[in-house]
Amino acid sequence: MLLVHVDVDNGTVAADSVEALRFAAAFGAANGIEVAALAFGDCAESLGPYGIGTLHVVRHELLDEHSPQLESAALAGLITELAPEAVFAPGSAHGNELLANTAARLGLPFAANCLEIGTGEPWTLTRSRGGGVLFEDAELTAEVKLCSIGQGAAIVTKTVAVQETSVTEHVPQLDPELPRARLVERTERGGGISLATAPVVVSGGRGVGSAEGYAALEELAALLGGAVGCSRVATNNGWRPHSDQVGLTGTKIAPELYIACGISGATQHWVGCMHAKHILAINTDPEAPMVTRSTYAVLGDVHEVIPALVAAIRAR
């Protein structure tokens, strides 16, 4: 049996768990392995279309604490009880944290952000490194294979028979004294245009030259109802806060339009903006990767191009 962990959002499968669920369902169908789901809440009604016959719901009053280590202790207990061949989880921050702690508890290996998985002995798989900067082919030998499913995983198209999902409840044995980090406060992000959701992002890198240089980018962003982003060079120079950084160790975004001003397009930056529908690069160097990979480019100095563009928009 293959267990797939999903997060629950208002009684249904959370958006960031859907890809792992689809991957697991297709993987099970392709390899003749039964797939059951596992969650810390009920979402049975949304699982049928994925061919999931059983949902194992883990409940315990201590789990209301949202401590990742308690969740992992509960998951480890369930793995010992059900002895699945493998456990999949979303390759999200939460999924990777859950499986890392579970693997540590059980002394099992853990393969993070898998894109393709082949059975056999050992399992062969492809992992995504650096948000897709590189692919790694690897072998996994373990009694229970723990894998998180990375963004952009190859989902084999296999028709999955729709099932009626039944729920099995589990109350794990949890040690209330387990040393752990406990959630004490949670604040929701306010509304307004954020880097992650803005339809247009005007982003600046080393080519902007200074903190003051971003005023022109702010002005353009305001005219387009967008947000300002930046490269790591800008954050490292103290020109912009880290919350503006686009890329592997910043925010990954997918706006309608990404305007990259004086950004070279290093792979670690690229993986943060590559899902933008359109990219406009403004750069003095026609050979910069950002230019050669973008939909549109303007060759030239940001300090000339942006003010001219702002003036043209205002003059409309």
């Binding site: 290996p109 393969a111 060759l299």
Partner: peptide
Amino acid sequence: GGLRALRLRTPPGIGTETKVLGSGAEAA
């Protein structure tokens, strides 16, 4: 441990044709 990296691969390339809109302020 039980996970062994065998080899690295570059992800499939992105075959974008870039449309150059112009140079400098004239491109506005």
